[in-house]
C-alpha cells in the first residue's frame, strides 16, 4: 500500500458530489476537514487515501481516484468515523455508497477478494434465506484462491468441525422465498 497524493491543480466538478449526496442522503459538503474520522480509524494505516481525504475528493469530483482506491474496500464498516463526525456525516455510509457506485459502474476493485467475499455471502443468503457458514466459506476459498485457497482454509475448517462448530446442512424453513423476493424487488432499482 502506498499513500496516494491528491492532484495539486484540479477543476472542481460538483456532479459526483451531488450523486453521492443523493444516493447516500448524507451531506458530504458539511465536512470541514477536521480529520477526526481519520484519526480514529483503526484501518487508516492500511488505506491509500485517508478517510477525510476521500470526503474531500468527493467534494472536488475526483471520481476515478476515489472509486479506484484501496480505502473503500479496506474500510471494515466499524462506524467509528460516523460516531465521531462533528458534522453528523455518516462516513461509513458514504463508503458503502462509493462501493456501490464502483460496483455498478464496473470499476475493478483494488482489493480483489473483498467484493468476492460479499458476493459469496449474499449468494448464500439469497439461496438459503440464512447464511450457511460452512458452504459459504468453502465457496469463498475456491473463488478467491482456487484449490490452493481451499486447502489453506481446510485446517481451520477441520478444527472447527472437531469442536462441533460446523453446521453441516443449511436450515430448512419456509421463509427463504421471502428473502429471494426481497433480492428481486431491490436489485434493479438499487
Amino acid at each position: 500500500m502506498t499513500v496516494k497524493e491528491l492532484p495539486q491543480a484540479i477543476t472542481p466538478n460538483a456532479s459526483f458530489r451531488k450523486k453521492v449526496e443523493e444516493m447516500s442522503e448524507e451531506k458530504v459538503s458539511a465536512c470541514y476537514q477536521c480529520e477526526k474520522c481519520t484519526n480514529g480509524c483503526p484501518l487508516a494505516f492500511a488505506m491509500d487515501i485517508a478517510p477525510h481525504k476521500v470526503i474531500r475528493s468527493v467534494h472536488l469530483g475526483l471520481k476515478d481516484t476515489v472509486l479506484n482506491s484501496d480505502t473503500i474496500w479496506v474500510c471494515a464498516s466499524c462506524e467509528t468515523c460516523t460516531t465521531r463526525c462533528p458534522n453528523g456525516i455518516d462516513i461509513a455510509h458514504i463508503m458503502d455508497t462509493l462501493r456501490q457506485i464502483a460496483q455498478r459502474e464496473g470499476v475493478k476493485a483494488s482489493q480483489r477478494n473483498v467484493p468476492i467475499f460479499h458476493d459469496v455471502f449474499l449468494s448464500s443468503m439469497r439461496r438459503f434465506g440464512r447464511v450457511h457458514e460452512a458452504s459459504m466459506a468453502v465457496t469463498y476459498s475456491l473463488k478467491s484462491g482456487g484449490i490452493k485457497g481451499l486447502l489453506g482454509q481446510a485446517g481451520m475448517g477441520l478444527g472447527m468441525f472437531k469442536k462441533g462448530k460446523v453446521k453441516i446442512l443449511p436450515s430448512r424453513f419456509r421463509a427463504n422465498k421471502r428473502v429471494r423476493d426481497i433480492f428481486r424487488a431491490t436489485e434493479r432499482k438499487g
Binding site: M23, S77, D96, T97, R99, Q100, Q103, P115, F117, H118, F121, L122, M125, T186, E187, G190
Partner: peptide, 8 residues
C-alpha cells in the same frame, strides 16, 4: 456485513 455494501 454484506448487504449494505451492495445495496442500501
Amino acid at each position: 456485513s454484506s448487504a449494505h455494501v451492495a445495496n442500501d
